[in-house]
Amino acid sequence: MKMLVLGIGNTLLTDEGIGIHVLQALEPELADWPDVTLLDGGTLSFTLAGPIEDTDALIVVDAAHIKTQPGGWALLQGEEMDAFLMSNRTSSVHEVGLTDLRAIAMLAGHWPERRAMLAIQPGVIDWGEHPTPAVAAAIPPVCTAIRKLIQEWRHVA
């Protein structure tokens, strides 16, 4: 099973770049996992439709307004992820783009059956290359959740 971990964000905007910071934290361990691809999705682009359509399982990591304290996070899987994307179009700077990528993949019949989003509540979105301490503290548990999810999906395949 081919799995894609897609980190989204702008690393020049403090907590907004958390998806990329999580990806960077995962890279040393997951780089050697042949069935897992780590992809820096930046601030999203339609060019990401191809990698999403080519994968069997998708994990998206992004800053999103999930109505919790800064650094709080949620794991949204399958239809729960879809519902979040469709009902909270303003919850992330990128969700219009992610929602559009979902629509493209669905039209092509390639929206992965196994999919999840790790949504991390930002505290500050302003110029700065590092997340705030509260949001940075979410990186280790989010990485653990991603590794656990990958292992679960491997056993189901």
Rank of each mutant, 00 (worst) to 15 (best):
A64K: 04
R147S: 12
Q77N: 01
P140E: 07
D15I: 09
S45T: 15
L48A: 10
V61K: 08
S45I: 04
M106V: 01
I18S: 07
M117T: 07
A145Y: 02
P112T: 13
A157I: 01
E29K: 05
R89C: 01
L75D: 10
T144V: 03
L75P: 12
A103P: 00
P34N: 02
E80F: 00
H130L: 09
I146H: 02
V96T: 09
Q24T: 11
H110V: 00
P70L: 04
G109V: 07
H110F: 12
I150Y: 03
I66H: 03
L23R: 06
T47R: 13
E27F: 04
L107N: 12
I146V: 14
L75C: 15
P34C: 03
W153Y: 08
G72L: 06
D15K: 08
I8Y: 03
T68A: 12
T144Q: 13
A145F: 03
T14P: 00
L98S: 04
I104Y: 12
G71L: 08
D15N: 06
G109F: 09
T99Q: 12
S87H: 12
V135T: 08
P140Y: 05
R147M: 08
L38R: 06
E53S: 08
L76D: 08
L149A: 10
D126V: 01
W127V: 05
S87D: 14
A74M: 14
R89N: 00
Q151L: 11
F46N: 05
L98W: 04
L118H: 01
L149I: 07
D40H: 13
H110K: 15
L44Y: 02
A57V: 01
L4T: 04
L58Y: 00
I66Q: 11
A64N: 05
A116L: 04
G128T: 13
